[in-house]
């Protein structure tokens, strides 16, 4: 269901272990990664992950809190949003 698709955006200074750190948290939370894209913007590393939370035992709220915490540990800013907001905003 579209409700179960979430978009995680991680940004900050590039360093070793970002992908590993976030992926590990996602695995622990039972969240499946469907796609990953990454780019460098104004010297900032930006990674976007499309995930499915339908199989996770955790609520959206818990997943979001945990990911933001992992981001903080890595010194990265993390945004977790339901994907629908992007689909609505950018699709006619």
């Amino acid at each position: 269901m579209s409700k179960d698709k979430i978009l995680i955006t991680i940004s900050g200074l590039d360093k070793v272990g970002i992908v590993a750190g976030i992926s590990q948290s996602l695995a622990k939370l039972g969240v499946n990664i469907e796609d990953i894209k990454q780019t460098i913007m104004q010297d900032h590393f930006v990674m976007m992950m499309l995930c499915d939370i339908s199989k996770s035992q955790n609520s959206f709220k818990t997943i979001k809190e945990e990911l933001i915490k992992s981001g903080e540990e890595l010194g990265m800013e993390v945004w977790v949003q339901r994907k629908e907001i992007f689909d609505k905003m950018h699709t006619i």
Binding site: L7, T9, E34, D35, K37, T39, M41, V46, M48, L50, W79, K83, I85, F86, D87, M89, H90
Partner: peptide, 14 residues
């Protein structure tokens, strides 16, 4: 829709 566009994501967050 399984895909997503990086530019759209960044624009929305900005």
């Amino acid at each position: 829709m399984a895909d997503f566009n990086e530019k759209d994501i960044i624009e929305t967050i900005e």
